[in-house]
């Protein structure tokens, strides 16, 4: 590390502090707002924490923040199932297809790769109508499988694994073959453990992607008890004939960022490792 002095040492700190404020301020507001009653929030904004923190959270978790929506606990659960399903599904499918493309010679292998690669150009938003049609025809509307399955094919993840596999030396495969490992054993004993950090990084990215999905769940779910937390927040803000209960909305928002936050905190080390220290 280069030793930094004077200005060059102060400036990074200023930038970091500014970033921290920028990100931290809205969260602070949400936390403070979620500790007051709805009446306290009308007309002015309190600068300090109120005394209704626990009440508010208990209320939204169990009863929901509007008179008709599902309880937040249900929505959190739906989001969790969807985000886990998407991230795990993506990892499983893309590591398997990348393995096939890199380590096996089969007819039309090049074409298969390019087909997968081309789907990069077709994100969910572009193919949303035909995909909806397919899901509807398969009677998967308002179900977890409808939320998850259409989104788990990932060209990006396949590409990432493919690039990673290319960095593994050929001799690794050859040594394993001489030791007697067939294709499946090589996958389980060598490729999978060596991909650990890549998998962790992908999991973080895809979990957050899945958690934050809005358009797709909005389209495939109509039943209230299937809605996800991101949809829930949106519904709360635009209730008709009612002042939005900002204390409950903020409590819901705070709850909504917790799971991605936990994922990042717990996977952070693996995540960073995947960039700086590929284990080879």
């Amino acid at each position: 590390m280069v030793e930094r002095r004077g200005l060059s040492r102060v400036i990074p700190h200023i930038v970091l502090l500014a970033g921290l404020l920028l990100v931290g301020f809205p969260i602070a507001i949400a936390l403070i707002a979620s500790s007051h009653t709805a009446a306290d929030l009308v007309g002015h904004f309190p600068a300090t924490f109120g005394s209704h923190l626990i009440d508010n959270y208990r209320h939204v978790l169990l009863a929901g923040s509007t008179n008709k929506g599902a309880p937040v606990a249900t929505m959190l659960w739906n989001s969790l199932v969807m985000a886990l399903g998407i991230s795990i599904g993506k990892i499983v499918i893309s590591i398997a297809s990348a393995y096939a493309i890199v380590y096996f010679r089969f007819p039309l292998r090049g074409l298969c790769f390019w087909l997968i690669f081309v789907t990069l150009m077709l994100p969910v938003q572009v193919r949303i109508l035909p995909t909806y049609q397919v899901v509807a025809d398969l009677h998967m509307l308002d179900s977890y499988s409808g939320l998850i399955v259409p989104l788990i094919a990932s060209a990006t993840a396949t590409f990432l694994f493919r690039q990673f596999f290319f960095t593994l030396p050929d001799e690794l495969l050859e040594a394993a073959r001489i030791d007697g490992a067939g294709p499946l054993r090589f996958f389980w004993d060598m490729v999978l453990p060596l991909s650990r950090t890549t998998i962790a990084a992908l999991f973080v990215v895809e979990f957050i992607y899945g958690w934050n999905l809005y358009l797709w769940p909005l389209i495939v779910t109509t039943r209230e008890n299937m809605s996800t937390i991101v949809m829930g927040i949106q519904h709360m803000v635009v209730v008709a004939d009612q002042t939005p209960s900002w204390n409950w909305i903020m409590a819901t928002a705070v709850l909504a960022i917790l799971p991605p936050l936990l994922v990042v905190i717990f996977m952070q080390r693996q995540f960073v490792k995947s960039f700086v220290e590929p284990e080879k």
Partner: peptide, 28 residues
């Protein structure tokens, strides 16, 4: 290769990086 009753030593060693030395030898 596994049916040929041979063992090979590579120039760059080709050890399994995620296994202990013991398991490297024990794997086959």
């Amino acid at each position: 290769p596994r049916e040929r009753d041979i063992a090979m030593v590579f120039q760059n060693y080709a050890l399994y990086p995620h296994m202990s030395v013991y398991n490297n030898m024990a794997y086959g």
